[in-house]
């Protein structure tokens, strides 16, 4: 199933979705598995093209699996363990001003909020 609308999206957006899918996975993924785990509906050939492009940029790694490759995300070369990023992130976390300059996806919840959200999710059938 291929949606022409998703195929026409800018290449950068498609690359972002594919990289996100690899980071969300806990093991290397074949192009077929990546295609299934994407929210966007893309042709398998498109997914393979994007994976190859990301591999060429050094953002992801790959290993042989059967007749093709399985891909996995790699951290920055200079920062193999992501320690710097993690430390900076926790420093930013302590900065209350950040809440205001950066539009965050979700704000912190109160216990009441949590109950309301769980009810909403349950009534949504998932």
């Amino acid at each position: 199933m291929t949606d022409a609308k998703d195929e026409r999206r800018p290449a950068g957006e498609l690359e972002a979705s594919v990289l996100a899918a690899l980071w969300a996975a806990d093991a290397p993924r074949t192009p077929g598995q990546v295609q299934l785990s994407l929210g966007a509906s893309l042709a398998r050939t498109t997914v393979t093209t994007i994976l190859t492009r990301l591999y060429d940029k050094g953002v992801i790694g790959r290993r042989r699996e059967g007749r093709g490759y399985a891909y996995f995300p790699v951290q920055d070369v200079q920062d193999a363990h992501g320690l710097t990023a993690r430390r900076m992130h926790s420093e930013l976390d302590r900065d209350s001003d950040r809440e205001r300059v950066l539009a965050r996806f979700v704000a912190q919840l109160s216990p009441g909020d949590e109950r309301i959200l769980r009810n909403l999710l349950e009534s949504d059938g998932r």
Binding site: L19, V59, P73, A85, R86, R98, R104
Partner: peptide
């Protein structure tokens, strides 16, 4: 200061398109 720290942080992680991934155990996005 917070903005500079955030930009420095975003300059390090792996990137694809407009996405920067930060390896962190805390769910966050901005």
């Amino acid at each position: 200061r917070a903005f500079r720290a955030a930009r420095a942080e975003a300059g390090r992680g792996p990137a694809a398109g407009d996405l920067r991934v930060v390896d962190s155990p805390y769910p966050d996005a901005y």
